[in-house]
Amino acid sequence: MLNWLVEPLQHSFMRQALLASILVGLTCSSLGVYVVLRRMAFLGDAIAHTTLPGLVIAYLNRWSLLWGAIISAIVTALGIGWLSRNQRLREDTAIGVVFSGMFALGIVMVSRAQSYRDFSHMLFGNVLGVTQSDLIGIGIVSVVVIGTLFAVNKEMALTTVDPHHAQTIGLSAQRMRYLLLVILALAVVAGIQSVGVVMTTALMVTPAAAASLITRRLHGMFIWSGILSVLSNCVGLYASFYLSISSGGAIVLACTILFGAVYVVTRLRWRHGNTRHRETCIAGSRRN
């Protein structure tokens, strides 16, 4: 068993991939808590897809892909926030417009580049191909995202649970939303290295959704989301190595299987708890 775990790590690309997976897992899962609690899964998906034009422009000009994606994602996030700022246009409508437009732009640019193969790792991820400089970029993004969340967690929580109260004490819910969108864009970019544009949302939503089934405490959600995410990233990576399957697909599938397992276990516990509660009530009424 130990050999089975250690053997892949003898390859430097696997060590880098594992480190990248853990960093991406922690980053996306911690932000995912707010994505789930604020019901922003669609927005996360949209931002992931809209990084495509930025990635293509950066690739064609031999710039850093990471920065191309970051700028594209931030422009999208702020654009959606601006379009839906005064509720004349609903946020999901604004997302639909910007998301499809930007993704279409990316597809057109890819077709102009006349090489779909070069962009396949952007669409579906390739954590096994992470380079040293990618790893540094992911590390910086992770520190920024997790550090920001840690620093403003009480404000983020308040603007989520009661934006009106936040507003009355001078804490702008709108500005907190923009901040969340910007760090969401950063986390998405980190996720793209691992599982690609198409599946990044899964890294944010699935572990946090599973965590929400396990606990009803915010801190507990952060912890469980992180554990489940790192676990599924590692399982997916090893599965990819031993079964020679797509790393991005394997990681997301591992996330989904873990979510399924958590769902079944929590349902069974809930049903068992309800039965015991019913029996206690019946026993109590008989005694009386």
């Binding site: 609690l37 308040l158 009661d162 109260h165 507990g220």
Partner: peptide, 22 residues
């Protein structure tokens, strides 16, 4: 106007009343 499904306890919600002083 509040999201009552947000995972915080009653005590934590009451504590948000102190944030303006923090």
């Amino acid at each position: 106007d509040l999201d009552w499904q947000f995972p915080v306890s009653v005590r934590q919600l009451v504590l948000t009343g102190r944030y303006v002083h923090l």
